[in-house]
Write a protein that binds this DNA or RNA. Structure first.
Length: 375
DNA sequence: CGGCATACG
DNA sequence: CGTA
DNA sequence: GCCG
């Protein structure tokens, strides 16, 4: 007894190699808060993000996902990682990523990430993949054709309509929006929409709602208490925005599973003038008045009953959404999607929710503020 | 060794 | 294949 | 690439 002056903590293990006790060590990112600007491990995270992105551009999506899990954990970790052993205790950090971290701790960098950064191929693929309508496959195809710049890509004879638009709007879409830029557009949307539909609810989501200082696009969820009114909502909103000269292009104009509606004349579906109702999404190029810059604005219509799940589903981050869906399925035998929460027993049943918090409660996930969903 | 989010055009 |  |  005497002669043994170790505290319990020291007995169990060296502080140095223990995880910070405040850290929620889980593979489900949605179970813990992740700040937008972590105070720790910033440099390490940046380097791992380089490798993650390179894996994506290479078509190794599963591999990239592993890096994403590790990165998300490091962003939520409340102090700097100081040893390989400490890193390896984090769920999501295995031998390979662990070794990268070991390299980082001894040399201050990760050689593979440095090589990627220096590679002309990845710089080019990175630029191509930023074009709206271009994913990693098309980016690689263009690179193999020998294109080196956006200008050369525009001469490609096989461009889709959307890719041509994406290339033309490339310079504008690359410009980030400040929160003030976004507020300017929100003010217009609010004025225009509420003039027509005073009871409309308009919620900015995406990175803006998560607190980002600068955003590449603006996502807005619109709903109306009367379901019948909501039917023509998107059509009316898009129409008036075009008439007022705000919308320059429609990048994507679609509806949810309205294919279920049989006997819809095909000329109405393929017609460039959309007369159909029940549309639920329009991604458009919106001209910001003060700068004349084309901004990507995504309008999403939600039936009133699905408003909470739609807002939750479109707030992100992407990894937060994947995580919450994965958790619902694996741990609760439920399915979460923007259009609702479902219990996967036979017959499959919709679980009604009245707020975003409802979804967290039903899933048994502690509430996470939008600003803390940045995994 | 299977699974990795889900739904849309 | 691409979008979120 | 990592987890269960």
């Amino acid at each position: 007894m005497e002669g043994n002056n170790f505290t319990d903590e020291e007995l169990s293990s060296d502080m140095e190699f223990d995880l910070d006790p405040c850290f929620i060590n889980t593979k489900y990112e949605c179970l813990r808060p992740t700040p937008l600007k972590p105070k720790y491990n910033q440099c390490l995270v940046e380097l791992l993000e380089v490798i993650e992105h390179a894996r994506e551009l290479n078509g190794e999506e599963r591999n990239a996902l592993s890096y994403r899990h590790a990165i998300a954990a490091l962003k939520a970790y409340p102090r700097n990682i100081e040893s390989y052993a400490e890193a390896r205790k984090i769920i999501g950090i295995g031998p390979k990523i662990g070794n990268h971290i070991k390299e980082f701790l001894t040399t201050g960098t990760i050689p593979e990430a440095e090589e990627i950064n220096a590679s002309e191929k990845y710089q080019t693929l990175d630029i191509f993949s930023r074009v709206y309508g271009v994913g990693y496959k098309t980016a690689r195809k263009w690179y193999q054709k020998g294109y080196k710049s956006i200008r050369e890509c525009m001469k490609d004879p096989y461009l889709t309509h959307v890719q041509r638009l994406g290339l033309e709007l490339f310079d504008d879409f690359q410009k980030k929006m400040s929160r003030q830029d976004i507020q300017e557009i929100l003010d217009i949307l609010n004025k225009v929409i509420k003039t027509m539909y005073p009871d409309c609810m308009i919620t900015p989501v995406g990175g803006y709602r998560r607190g980002k200082e600068f955003s590449g696009d603006l996502d807005v969820v619109v709903s109306h208490p009367q379901e019948t009114v909501a039917n023509n909502l998107l059509k009316d909103i898009v129409e008036i925005l075009i008439n007022k000269g705000h919308l320059k292009h429609k990048l994507f104009y679609g509806q949810p599973s309205a294919k279920n509606k049989k006997d819809v004349p095909s000329e109405l579906i393929s017609s460039h003038k959309n007369i159909m109702d029940n549309l639920d999404k329009c991604f458009c190029a919106f001209i910001q008045p003060s700068t004349r810059i084309c901004r990507q604005v995504d309008l999403i219509i939600a039936p009133y009953s699905q408003y909470p799940t739609t807002v939750l589903g479109w707030t992100g981050s992407k990894q937060f959404e994947r995580s919450i869906r994965n958790f619902a399925k694996k741990e609760k035998k439920m399915t979460f999607a923007s259009h609702g929460l479902f219990l996967n027993v036979v017959p499959r049943r919709r679980v009604c929710v009245t707020s975003e918090k409802d979804v967290f409660d039903i899933l048994g996930i502690p509430w996470v503020e939008p600003e803390m969903r940045n995994c």
